[in-house]
Design a protein around this nucleic acid. Structure first.
Lengths: 225, 225
DNA sequence: GGTCGGCGTGAAGAACCCGTAGCGAAGCCG
DNA sequence: CGGCTTCGCTACGGGTTCTTCACGCCGACC
């Protein structure tokens, strides 16, 4: 469950926020002062902060800065102030968004979803293919065998990537040639022989007893992880 | 240099945007239709998109969805529509922020900074990178070898920073050239040769037995800490 | 058993790319 | 204005990769 910290000095608004957010499946903690907000952000480690700027004890930008000193949690600022200078100050202090009152609940929920979506999409796990001692990191374009990097040329790597991203499938000569060399090379299947050979050598595979690249005579090749 | 894609159907606004953004050091590309926007986002790979919703050809949320199908680039929506339903639709389609016209330039710039900051803080890389005797302090723009500072020119430093903040990854010629020289230099890979040479000399690396910058022939370079 | 096509293998020339030195131009300082 | 630094750009030698060829092997088919 997603934890949201709501900071507002008016109990009435805190209650309204809590009701709306909980109705949409969020777990809510509310506090009424800036000091409490900093403490709650630290010990609760919420996944999002909704911060009202009209706090009695601390200036809003100070709250943002102090939270930012230890956390990257998304902060959405709610405020009655519509002056441009206020928005710039809050955003540059580290806020992620600035919504001016009066606002609709739906808008705040949408901005909240946008902020949370950004956060989690920040780290899409890079596809690393693993086959025994062989690792192919497509994101870094890095290939290792038993932990030590293997140097592949441009063409060798393109061919390997075509294989590992289509593991198990039968890849015809035509298809591979087009994928690696481009259109107009569909007939040059001897290129494949040369580069499959090169890959097998560098990756420690042998044609007579293949563990990685299987020859399908007359048709193509198949990657058997 | 940070590349921003501005999408607006009114030439006057496009010009104004370009002027403001370029004055703040951004590299700007402008387009006038939704179709162009999707194409430009794909081939230009900008670091941020400013999208006006009143486009003649496509619905704004469609533009957002189509860009989102291949890219996570931050999208800030500008619109005359202040209705809550419009904001919710745009944000849920994948927009990162929604600003209602009329808006101030300073506010847009602040929201732009906030979006870019979020972007890069996704990977909390330590401010000081260490590789044996080499230290690169990205925050202070300071480089030392064995404790003594090394003087790097602007271009040399930009290149080094691109390397150390992407250690391990294979960086293509195109990517490096765009990052350091800006876009429009994607073909000038001889610049890279010259500046990689310069870096290697100042950092005590040699091309024949590289400990820092590895050449990947025909593709690019790789920082191997 | 012989022939033939497809595949694996090694090697060599061609094409391409990189490292390196250096020159003129532009910008920056006093 | 004059020296210095930095940048853009070119040229050339050397190294790597790509392409191409030749040969041996194996299975299929006649």
């Amino acid at each position: 469950m997603t934890r949201v910290l709501v900071v507002d000095d008016e109990p009435q608004i805190r209650r309204a926020m809590r009701t709306s957010l909980e109705a949409h499946g969020y777990e809510v903690r509310t506090v009424g002062t800036g000091e409490e907000a900093v403490v709650a952000a630290a010990e609760d480690d919420p996944e999002l902060v909704l911060l009202d700027l009209g706090l009695p004890d601390l200036d809003g930008t100070d709250v943002i800065r102090r939270v930012r000193s230890f956390s990257e949690v998304p902060i959405i600022v709610l405020s009655v102030r519509d002056r441009q200078a206020d928005k710039v100050a809050a955003l540059d202090a580290g806020a992620d968004d600035y919504v001016t009152k009066p606002f609709g609940v739906e808008e705040v929920l949408a901005r909240l979803r946008a902020a949370l979506r950004r956060r989690q999409s920040g780290e899409p796990s890079p596809p690393v293919h693993r086959f025994g001692e062989l690792e192919v990191d497509v994101g870094r374009r890095l290939v290792t065998v038993s932990g030590s990097p293997v140097h592949l040329t441009k063409t060798e790597y393109a061919l390997l990537e075509a294989f590992v991203t289509n593991a198990g499938k039968l890849l015809t000569h035509q298809w591979l040639l087009r994928k690696v060399w481009g259109h107009g090379y569909a007939e040059e299947s001897h290129y494949l022989r040369v580069y499959v050979r090169s890959l097998r050598r560098k990756l420690g595979d042998e044609a007579s007893a293949p563990r990685l690249i299987l020859t399908e005579p007359g048709v193509g090749y198949r990657w058997i992880g």
